[in-house]
Amino acid sequence: MNIYKVLPDLSNERQMRLWQQGIRKQWSADDIDWNAPRRIGGEKIRDQLGRILTPVLTGEQSVLYSVSGLIPVLEHLSKVPAQFYLTTWAVDEARHTELFARYFGRIDREPLSIRKFPAGFLFQSRIISKDPSEWLTGVLASESMAQVVSHQLRDLDLDPVLSEICAGIIEDESRHLGFNHIYIEDQFKELYAEDAEKADQKALESG
């Protein structure tokens, strides 16, 4: 049985602000105009998009699973505001997963299989961790990558639906990166307050 405080400690103001933002800025895959004329008609370009969007789709899915897995971990640590925020992060990644899954339908292609694209799947396994700080450090790399690739795809404007998806994801990713920063900063604040030498060592190991 889990023991938790009846009245949760919600004093982490920065995390609570992000949680509020996370709720207010929700949107749905149905908000996208999926019937917008497709600008990418050729077989070849759709094959290519199918391949490059494979790591994007698997990335979204694996972050969804790892975020969901960390929600109970934060509960055990009594980090309630962070747990609140992660519930919205999970919704965000569920939406991103839905968006790309539906986009594969729009281009009438399937993602590459594990056999054909092992690197993409191996990458995801590098990020999984049950320790929130370790996970956030790893996910910082994949979230930064999602952000940079989304910017490039949005600016290329290959297809109006893909551009709209990317524009929405960029906004969501900035919240994820914001939380990432706040959580890691809070963790290191605690570590440095406890034992500066140990914290320096941990900082070195995180990089």
Binding site: L177, N180, K189, Y192
Partner: peptide, 22 residues
């Protein structure tokens, strides 16, 4: 960008925590 920015973000968070503690 990924190499530089992801690392920079991590450094920034760690040093931010260090500054606030010390």
């Amino acid at each position: 960008i990924l190499d530089r920015v992801a690392r920079h973000r991590l450094d920034k968070a760690i040093l931010g925590g260090k500054d606030r503690a010390l």
